[in-house]
């Protein structure tokens, strides 16, 4: 019997990520990771790509992790956990391990969308029984806010600075969750720690499937986003309400949108909260702002259309 997804019940579980880690005050990543770990009802072994989460949680001789954990390098959290999972299968087959264990990999957007993309794709295609969690803060925050392929259009980073001629990042972000879904894996989803129950439900589904799963979690970074330390959760909420970060899941290829804002807010509501987009509100950046809204609208409408198709198909088949 799993612990009900109610905070009162969940709070009785042990925290598998302790305090005393050295992530910045108000960082979104540990909020997400704590929720991921609290959702799990089976023993976990984790690998972690190089990045903020990795360095800040394991500064020798201290570790904040209460689960077996391995960091090897930046681009290979998925390959590393593939090896761990393969050894589990081998030893289980030989009777040298008898416990049920699940395997999880953590990576930031740099380690997942960019340098770790190949190893992630390989691990998904090989159908390892692993869950890959990307905590997406939209840039290489650990090295000091450099652009990644997850950096939103228009954002000011240290390698795409908002200058007098070029106004921040000129390209829209890569849609990694969709790319992962295109691997035809049993489970792929997008979540945010503000919607903790949705996030934890997704983690449970991801852990339950036999095979690879991917969850992309929005994780605000107040240093890189140029925001105060107190509003990480609120920013996640606005991201979902503007459909900048839609919450959805693919279960065996079938799309469900898990959160539809009653009233979809303009993306400027999200952008204006952050210093990294401040320059977009000057008169000569209006094109980028317009594009940003168009991108969000297109993605959201595509999601709605795709979901409607699935619903229609289910109705035709009489599945309701």
């Amino acid at each position: 019997m799993s612990t009900p997804l109610r905070l009162k019940e969940l709070s009785k579980k042990a925290d598998l990520l302790t305090g005393g880690h050295r992530l910045c005050a108000g960082c979104g990543a540990p909020i997400a990771i704590r929720q991921v770990l609290l959702a799990a009802e089976v023993p976990l072994v984790a690998s972690n790509a190089t990045g903020c989460l990795e360095v800040s949680t394991t500064i020798y001789p201290y570790t904040a992790w209460k689960i077996p954990w391995i960091h090897t390098a930046f681009e290979n959290a998925a390959a590393t956990i593939s090896g761990v999972e393969a050894m589990y299968k081998a030893l289980k087959k030989k009777g040298r391990v008898d416990r049920k264990i699940k395997f999880i990999a953590f990576g930031g957007d740099g380690g997942t969308y960019d340098i770790g993309f190949q190893s992630l794709s390989g691990a998904m295609e090989r159908r390892h029984d692993i869950v890959y969690i990307c905590y997406d803060n939209g840039a290489y925050m650990n090295t000091g806010i450099q652009r990644s392929s997850a950096t939103p259009l228009g954002a000011n980073t240290t390698t795409c600075p908002a200058g007098s001629v070029i106004h921040g990042k000129q390209q829209p972000r890569k849609n990694l969750t969709k790319i992962m879904a295109a691997h035809n894996i049993p489970y792929a989803a997008q979540a945010s720690p503000a919607h903790w129950r949705d996030l934890m439900t997704k983690v449970r589904k991801a852990l339950d499937v036999d095979g690879p799963a991917f969850i992309n979690i929005l994780a605000p970074c107040n240093r890189g986003w140029r925001t105060p330390t107190h509003n990480a959760v609120e920013l996640c909420r606005i991201a979902a309400d503007t459909c900048f970060w839609p919450l959805y899941e693919y279960e065996n290829g079938r799309l469900t949108i898990n959160y539809k804002p009653k009233e979809k807010k303009p993306v400027t509501e999200f952008l204006k909260t952050q210093g990294r987009f401040k320059h977009l509100f000057s008169p000569d950046s209006q094109d980028l702002l317009k594009q940003a809204q168009e991108n969000v609208d297109r993605e959201w409408e595509n999601l709605l259309r795709e979901e409607a198709c699935w619903r229609e198909e289910a109705e035709t088949k009489g599945e309701g």
Binding site: A78, A79, V84, A86, M87, S119
Partner: peptide, 27 residues
């Protein structure tokens, strides 16, 4: 009865070997 992991690059080959070895078996 080896688990053969047919990875997508040598970098991943060694990464998977490391993960597997740290997991506790012969690699």
């Amino acid at each position: 009865d080896t688990e053969l992991v047919t990875v997508e690059s040598e970098h991943s080959a060694m990464s998977a070997c490391i993960g597997a070895s740290a997991a506790g078996g012969r690699v």
